[in-house]
Amino acid sequence: MTATDPGLRSLRVEVLGPQHDRSHFASGVEVLDRYFQTHIGQDARKNIAAPFVLVLPDGTVAGYYTLSATALHLADLPAETARKLPRYPLVPATLLGRLAVDKRYHGHGYGGYLLADALRRCLRSKIASFAVIVDAYDDNARRFYEAMSFLALPDTPRKLFRPLADIARLFEESGA
């Protein structure tokens, strides 16, 4: 989950702020572009979502993602996963609500870079969370998350999860 662009060290992920130009962002997915250009600031101000942007050395926003608190119904998890958890009706989780890369930068590994940053932030958080949840907006997004070892929920194949304990092992093994 690292970017393949040679300027990797010059990339930075920041909390979205007024200095970030959102007007020209175009991922190729209209709903993600419209959200980023018109609604993301409101969600941030109302504490609905915490938005983060991938900023290139020239200040261009190459991508973004959002994180929010959520919960999963224990019964929605695969049986083998649910068996290992306390019998609470809801299990705390973190929602990776949106993730998009500007189409000018597709193929540079920035999606994986953003995902790795989001997972690292989830691990560093002091808020209890069993897993990171994603709602893949289409089959391409679902395949991206499955390639990153996210598992589909049994009854909703575009809703995927990855346990935080698994994510922690991933970073320990990679030395990140």
Rank of each mutant, 00 (worst) to 15 (best):
L164T: 09
L164A: 08
V91I: 04
L90K: 01
S27T: 12
L115P: 11
L160P: 13
V101R: 02
K103L: 06
F144W: 08
K46D: 01
R45K: 00
V134D: 02
D155L: 14
P57A: 01
V132G: 00
P6G: 08
L160T: 10
T70R: 03
N140Y: 11
A71N: 04
L119K: 14
D21T: 08
G175F: 02
F36H: 06
A136G: 09
R162H: 13
R162N: 11
F150Q: 15
S68C: 13
L16K: 08
R98Y: 03
L16H: 04
E173Y: 01
Y137H: 13
P92N: 07
T38G: 07
L115S: 02
P57Y: 00
A71H: 05
R83W: 10
N47P: 06
A100G: 11
R34K: 09
F130V: 00
A147V: 12
H108I: 02
H39M: 13
F25N: 13
Q19W: 12
L90P: 12
E80M: 04
A3P: 07
R9M: 13
I167R: 06
K103R: 14
A62W: 13
V101C: 05
S149D: 15
F36Y: 11
I133C: 09
Y35A: 01
Y113V: 12
L72E: 03
R9A: 15
P86S: 06
Q37S: 05
P157G: 02
H39D: 12
L85G: 05
A62V: 03
E146M: 14
R143L: 13
S129W: 06
N47W: 03
P154Q: 14
R162A: 06
G107W: 05
P92W: 11
P18K: 09
Q37F: 10
A136D: 09
A176N: 05
D33Y: 02
L115I: 02
T60V: 07
C122P: 04
F130G: 00
S125V: 01
R162S: 08
A82K: 03
S125M: 11
A26S: 14
I127G: 04
A79M: 12
V29H: 15
